[in-house]
Nucleic acid binder design. Structure first.
Lengths: 237, 237
DNA sequence: AAAATAGTGTCTCTTAGACATTATATA
DNA sequence: TATATAATGTCTAAGAGACACTATTTT
């Protein structure tokens, strides 16, 4: 004989309740040509057909065992890459953000190094410089989402070494500093930047050097402490 | 003649898609008897009947125009209060967290001063000290949610003046420091704490004093900068 | 006066930021 | 050798943390 709880669950029907349309949207950031870029897709179906949108889509209750799985699936689908830095930003939901009805999106951002993926993007997707993307009329409330994700990235750049995820495995400290400067949209003092990352042990020298411009530079790599390391003092905004 | 997009929306039926069960759950924090407490409800229906759970519930697509509205509605329903500090923590969703099916919750935390509400709680709800609550077998994954919310509170206590929201409008600096110490579970140096909050201008003296113990103390109040102010240097964890 | 709580003085240490200087590679 | 880029030296300022000290109230 089934328990009361088993009976309850047997009779429970999800379709009896009205639920919000739930999606996962992603800001995939990468540095291209010394500028922060974001991946946008041109929508080829209604609603908001032909407008640019953040990559994303519905949670697939069959395929995705949790929301992060949805995010990784979308990322793989759109960029062909498997394991970048992924972070949940926040969830935005309202009656009005999608004409199809009450809808909710869980916003993530990803940091990738575009050089390390040779995968060709779908013809619908393209990289846009943040500043350009923020001027374009994006689908739904994606302009707001983009700003939220960008703000989070800027904010975390002030107190973590997160931007390392935007570089190839080996990089020079000048390259790293440049990435920080691109994100924060301001110059940083060389000496204290180097002291900061080196005393924090978020990078270690590889012994190798890189000859790109004039004098060759030391190549560094992440120590792997990046994800959870917080600098003792944040950079000024 | 309707446009193609209008036709698409007319034929669009939400019920054609499988959607996650979406709820908003809340950690309502308050200081009682010099300890951080959280409001828990005893569930009186399946599933997880009779277990303690965080207050929360389904988004009401008719009543709630956005997710924050759901959070405020739940808060009013459970505590009778209207305008405390409310912050979204994160969203957690998976196949397995609820026996009814794929479910998603958007987790918020609220900070209230229990003294300022004379509202009686429903007989199902009760305050538990964090340490006690973390030892109890909570419904669903609410133990994990509780820990996430507590972690966020601790973390923000290190670089903002957020705990002010746990106090009545007027308070002494010693009271404020005590709240910080309760949350961070460690003693703080008196001199630098006072310097910190005063130079940051997150509190201002009211001119009034409070006679509670021996020597009377100055009463301060929030300057309202609390929400977005970040101290230039975080407290150590 | 004693005790308890409120509040200040002063020192050290760390680290961001400013700015000058040196080092090393290429052309 | 000139030049550009890489990297270091040295100083200042701000603020956290430690610890000793003073102030004010009640009993």
């Amino acid at each position: 004989m089934p328990s009361l709880e088993q009976q309850y669950l047997k009779n429970y029907n999800i379709k009896d309740y009205e639920l919000p349309l739930t999606t996962v949207d992603m800001c995939i950031f990468s540095i291209i040509n010394q500028q922060l870029h974001v991946l946008l897709l041109k929508r080829n179906s209604f609603p908001e057909k032909n407008k640019r949108a953040l990559p994303g889509g519905f949670i697939d209750l069959k395929k995705d065992s949790n929301i992060e799985a949805t995010a990784y699936r979308q990322l793989l689908l759109k960029t062909g890459i498997q394991c970048p830095y992924l972070e949940q930003v926040e969830s935005v939901g309202s009656q009005s953000r999608d004409p199809r009805g009450w809808s909710l999106t869980i916003l993530y951002f990803a940091l990738i190094d575009i050089q390390t993926i040779d995968q060709k993007l779908s013809p619908q997707s393209d990289w846009y410089a943040i500043k350009e993307a923020q001027k374009m009329p994006l689908a739904f409330d994606h302009a707001v989402l983009l700003t939220k994700a960008f703000e989070r990235l800027k904010s975390k750049t002030c107190y973590t070494a997160l931007p390392i995820a935007l570089l190839p495995q080996k990089f020079t400290l000048t390259e790293l500093q440049t990435i920080f400067e691109i994100i924060l949209e301001k110059k940083l003092p060389v000496k204290s930047f180097r002291l900061r990352v080196q005393t924090a042990k978020v990078v270690k020298a590889t012994g190798q050097t890189k000859i790109s411009g004039k004098r060759s530079a030391q190549l560094y790599e992440s120590t792997g402490l990046t994800a959870d390391f917080y600098f003792p003092r944040p950079l000024q905004r």
